Deep mutational scan, measured.
Amino acid sequence: QVALSRTQVCGILREELFQGDAFHQSDTHIFIIMGASGDLAKKKIYPTIWWLFRDGLLPENTFIVGYARSRLTVADIRKQSEPFFKATPEEKLKLEDFFARNSYVAGQYDDAASYQRLNSHMNALHLGSQANRLFYLALPPTVYEAVTKNIHESCMSQIGWNRIIVEKPFGRDLQSSDRLSNHISSLFREDQIYRIDHYLGKEMVQNLMVLRFANRIFGPIWNRDNIACVILTFKEPFGTEGRGGYFDEFGIIRDVMQNHLLQMLCLVAMEKPASTNSDDVRDEKVKVLKCISEVQANNVVLGQYVGNPDGEGEATKGYLDDPTVPRGSTTATFAAVVLYVENERWDGVPFILRCGKALNERKAEVRLQFHDVAGDIFHQQCKRNELVIRVQPNEAVYTKMMTKKPGMFFNPEESELDLTYGNRYKNVKLPDAYERLILDVFCGSQMHFVRSDELREAWRIFTPLLHQIELEKPKPIPYIYGSRGPTEADELMKRVGFQYEGTYKWVNPHKL
């Protein structure tokens, strides 16, 4: 086992960053958080920038500027975001240094004079007029057009580079997404736009490419001749908990499936790229999406959770019991969808996408189930092999396979070949997804960000279904809070070829 401390991990990262040409360590950078008073800024962006600063992973002359409508001070920003920093008493001095680099400007999102004030403020910072500028839009999409237009007109660096990070949702359907994309691309070049999907920053999602293309053993079996089906799962054990009003506007397909799960599907299904260059990788992902037809209604199961009468606390409440959810809402909190990649490698292999709230566990994984062994000599005792990439929690890679049961006879039983990170790298604290992705933006690497043509294809696949749901308002199937979801989803999976045995229990190697 390799035991690495946080300091050692960050030392390795620093070495990698400083050796590259793309990370300008000594240049002045300004990180501007648009929507600095909001939840995302408070819980994710400010803490992430602090962790990067604490670990010495930001360029040395980096300033952080918050911008929002609320009249706040840096002290206010500190008060609301610091509880999420997880700072230790030993880091007190470092924390003071961090907040000394912070400033805040209040202004409207659609007022040109406010942006001119913001620009004057940035120019007044040390070497601010020639600094590289990175704008993070932690804002609702309704203000994107006004904000990007004003940034472009008043706040661009004339000497350094300018980059803009856009948070999902990128529209509600193909038409609104196209409108937003066309607007942003009329102001910024594609190499300046970073559409963030934080799932692409997760260690195991990034590991998929290495697993596939750096190991000879997987190449020959990664196709329709050997793989019976692919299941991509995202499960949350909690409901909307008072935030249903926002969720109800989008629903589970827009929230998770059309982005996170579809991105994971691309990494499983794509061909080997010409290189690890950002556009070479994204070219292959677009090719996969172009091979997927629009979702067919007979390959869809929609569910909505109801309270568990035997549960406790939140578990007793259904989705419609959330006071922020519109009365009688038919918005799905669970969806199972089957897609097919219609190309030579994957023809006929079902890709089953499942996601839901208020389920029995927290889990995100990719599961490849292989065909049955031909010419069975073990009297149907063999179960199908599976390769599982567990994204969260407890990152893991393992192969479910058959071995001989101890004893006199040739009785096979299920076991696993474990390729888990935790076994080799004991207690290594890896940077989280937002840390990686923000560092990628500083480096100018777009590999783990969504390109406009990729986004367009993703919406093309799901828009007809979303429009049909909005028009017909089908009643989702009720499922109990804390269950596996509607049984109809299991029946759909069985119908397209997935075999669920229920006889195997994964042993978490992190707890051995």
Rank of each mutant, 00 (worst) to 15 (best):
D418G: 12
G313V: 09
Q468M: 10
H371M: 09
K494Y: 14
K505G: 14
A335H: 00
T463H: 02
C355V: 10
A269H: 03
E312I: 10
Y479N: 01
N343R: 05
G318W: 01
R451K: 03
N423D: 15
Y504G: 06
M493C: 15
V256I: 14
P476T: 12
K405F: 15
V288A: 10
Y481A: 12
A358G: 12
V325R: 02
A297K: 15
P350H: 04
H379W: 10
A332M: 07
D372Y: 06
M402G: 05
M264D: 02
D440W: 06
V301L: 08
P326Q: 06
M401F: 12
M402D: 05
N308W: 08
G407A: 09
A364G: 13
V441F: 06
V295Q: 08
L419R: 05
L437G: 00
G348W: 02
K473H: 14
P393E: 07
C382P: 15
V337Y: 05
H260L: 01
Y421G: 00
E365R: 02
P476S: 07
E413I: 11
Y481M: 11
N343C: 12
V281G: 08
V295F: 09
L289R: 00
E491N: 14
K290F: 03
R354G: 03
K287S: 10
N394D: 15
K290Y: 07
A335C: 12
T316R: 10
L359R: 01
V301R: 09
A374W: 08
F378Y: 10
N394Q: 14
E271L: 05
C266W: 00
A358C: 08
E271F: 00
S275H: 04
F409R: 15
Y425I: 06
P486K: 04
I480M: 15
D321M: 09
V295H: 08
F442S: 02
R345T: 15
C382W: 11
V391D: 04
A396M: 04
P476D: 00
Q258N: 03
D490K: 08
E457C: 10
M401K: 01
R495Y: 13
D255L: 04
F498K: 09
I389L: 11
E491C: 11
Q392W: 01
P326F: 06
S278A: 10
G318R: 06
K285S: 03
A336R: 01
G422D: 13
Q468A: 12
F378N: 05
T316I: 14
L302N: 05
K357Q: 02
D255W: 01
G311C: 14
R451W: 07
G502H: 12
E416N: 04
A335R: 04
Q392R: 00
D453Q: 08
N308M: 11
K317H: 14
D372V: 03
G303N: 06
K494W: 12
T330V: 15
S278K: 06
N423H: 11
A269F: 04
R354C: 03
Q304R: 08
D490G: 09
E416S: 10
N298L: 11
D321S: 12
L302W: 07
A336N: 12
E454R: 01
R327F: 14
V366Y: 03
A374V: 11
W459Q: 01
S445K: 13
V338F: 07
N360I: 04
L419W: 04
E470M: 09
K494V: 12
G348T: 06
V306S: 15
V325I: 07
T331I: 07
V450H: 03
W506S: 05
V300A: 13
L492Y: 08
P309R: 11
V337M: 09
C266R: 00
N298Y: 11
R254P: 05
Y319P: 04
P431C: 09
F442G: 03
I377H: 08
A458P: 05
V325T: 11
S278I: 00
L466S: 06
V366F: 08
V349M: 06
I292H: 05
D372N: 11
D321F: 06
Q446R: 02
G318D: 11
F370D: 03
E271S: 07
V496Q: 11
F370C: 06
V268W: 04
E413A: 12
Y500S: 06
T403Q: 08
Q499V: 12
E365I: 06
W346R: 02
L320K: 14
M264S: 05
E454H: 04
A374M: 09
G318H: 08
K475V: 14
F442K: 05
R436D: 03
E395K: 07
Q304H: 05
T487L: 15
P412C: 11
K290D: 08
R456E: 08
G375F: 09
A269L: 06
D347N: 14
S275R: 08
R254W: 01
D440C: 00
H467L: 11
K473T: 11
V349R: 01
D279M: 13
V496M: 09
N308E: 11
E284A: 09
H467R: 15
L353Q: 03
W459A: 02
N394T: 08
N360S: 09
V338H: 09
V441P: 08
I438Y: 06
V450C: 04
L417H: 04
E284V: 10
D440S: 06
L492R: 01
T403D: 03
Y481Q: 11
K404H: 01
P412N: 12
E271D: 09
G311I: 10
A315Q: 14
V301Q: 08
R390T: 08
P476I: 11
L261H: 05
N385S: 04
I438P: 01
D321N: 11
T403M: 12
F449R: 03
Q392D: 00
T316F: 13
G422E: 13
K505L: 13
C291E: 13
M401R: 05
E470F: 08
E312M: 13
P474T: 15
Y500H: 15
T330Q: 14
A332I: 02
N385I: 03
K272D: 08
K429S: 15
S415F: 04
M408N: 04
D310Y: 15
L439F: 10
S415L: 01
R362Q: 12
M270D: 01
V306T: 15
Q392T: 10
K287N: 11
N277T: 13
K505F: 14
A374R: 11
R456A: 15
E488T: 09
A458L: 04
M408H: 13
D490W: 07
V281Q: 04
R460G: 08
F410S: 11
I389M: 10
P273N: 01
A358I: 06
V306E: 11
D440H: 07
T331H: 07
G311H: 10
T420L: 02
K505T: 15
V288Q: 05
I469H: 11
V397H: 00
I389D: 01
D255C: 03
I477Y: 14
L465D: 05
A332Q: 09
V268N: 05
C291L: 14
L368R: 04
Y319A: 03
R456K: 15
L419K: 06
D322I: 05
M408W: 06
T333Y: 04
I477Q: 15
R362P: 09
F351R: 02
K505S: 15
I377E: 08
I469E: 09
T403N: 14
K290P: 03
N298E: 13
G303M: 03
R254M: 05
R424N: 05
W346S: 04
Y305G: 00
C266Y: 03
V388I: 12
H260F: 02
R495T: 13
G303Y: 04
D283Y: 05
A396C: 13
G313M: 13
E501Y: 11
Y434K: 05
W506K: 05
K505R: 10
T420P: 07
Y398G: 00
V341T: 04
T331N: 12
K426W: 09
E312L: 14
W459C: 04
K426D: 11
P406F: 04
E312W: 12
V306C: 14
E342K: 10
I352G: 04
M408T: 05
K429C: 14
N298W: 07
L359C: 13
P431K: 06
V295S: 10
V306W: 09
P412A: 11
L430F: 10
